[in-house]
Amino acid sequence: MKFAYLALALLVMTPGALASNKPDPASDLKAFQGYFLKRFPKIPLAAYVNGPYDFSKSERAQWKQIMEFPPYQFALDHGRKLFEAKFPNGKSYAACFPHGGIGIAQNYPMFDPKTGRVVTLGIAVNRCRVANGLGKLKLTTGPMADILAYMTDTSRGKTIDVTVPDNPKALAAYQAGKQYFYSRRGQLNFSCASCHVQAAGMHLRGNVLAPALGITASFPLYRSKWGNMGTLVRRFIGCNKKVRSVPDKPDSAAYRDLAYFLTSMSDGLPIAGPGARP
C-alpha cells in the first residue's frame, strides 16, 4: 500500500510533496469515528445518526413525541409526487439515476470523474432537470428539499457508503473538504469542528450540539426553528452565518467538498433521513 501511495504521489503531486501528505480517507475515518467512540463510550456507532438526542433525555423525549407523526411527512408526500411526476418531455427523475433513483441516497455525494467534481444528490437532481430541459431548483429548501426527503427516505437504514476513489481530483476534493471543516473562519473564529467535534454533545444555550459523526445521515430535515425543510447545504449556510462568515454559494466547490468529506466520515452508519430537529 505504502509503495503504491508513494508511486502515485510521485506521479501526480507537485514536486517536493511528501507521500505522507497524500489524503488517506480510510485512516481519517478510523481516527474520526474512533475519537467519538472513545469519548462517548456508551453511545454505539449507529446511534450517532440521532444527532443531539443521545445527549439529553428531555430533548429525546420531545423528539420521540414529535416523531410519532413527523413534521416532514407533508414534505415526504410532496417530494414523492414531484419525483414521480413526468417532465414535459415524458421522462422523469428515475431515468437519470441508477435503480430509478430509489435507495441510492447513501452513495451521495459522489465524485464524478467526467467533470472532476463532487456531485451531491441535490446537484444530481438539478443536473437531471437541466438534461431534460428544466430549470434548476434552489438547493436549500422548498421542492428540492422535498424531493431529497423522498429519495433519502427510500434509503432509510441503508449504510452510508461514500468511498473516495483513488483519483487525484477526488482526493483533492476530499482534502479541500477536510481542510474547510477544520479551518476556523468568521469573526467568531469557529471551525465546523469547534462545535461539532470539540464541543459535540455540549449545550450551546438551549440546544445540544450534534456530533459531526452521523450528522449528515438525517438530512434533509425539518427544523422547528425553520418551520420547514432544509438540506445539508442550508445548514452549512446557517452555520457560516452564525459564526459571522459570509456563506458560500449552495453549489460551490467549497460546500460540495465539505459535504463529501463530512458524509464520508459517517461511512458505515445508516441513513436516518429525512429527520426532525429543534
Binding site: D28, A31, Y35, K178, R184, R185, Q187, S194, V197, Q198
Partner: peptide, 22 residues
C-alpha cells in the same frame, strides 16, 4: 475587519491540522 480575516485565513492554512482528531 478584512485584514483580520485575511490574517485568520493565512494562519488557518497551517493551524487547521491541529483540530483534526487523531
Amino acid at each position: 475587519l478584512a485584514e483580520l480575516s485575511i490574517a485568520q485565513a493565512m494562519q488557518q492554512k497551517k493551524l487547521w491540522v491541529n483540530e483534526v482528531p487523531r
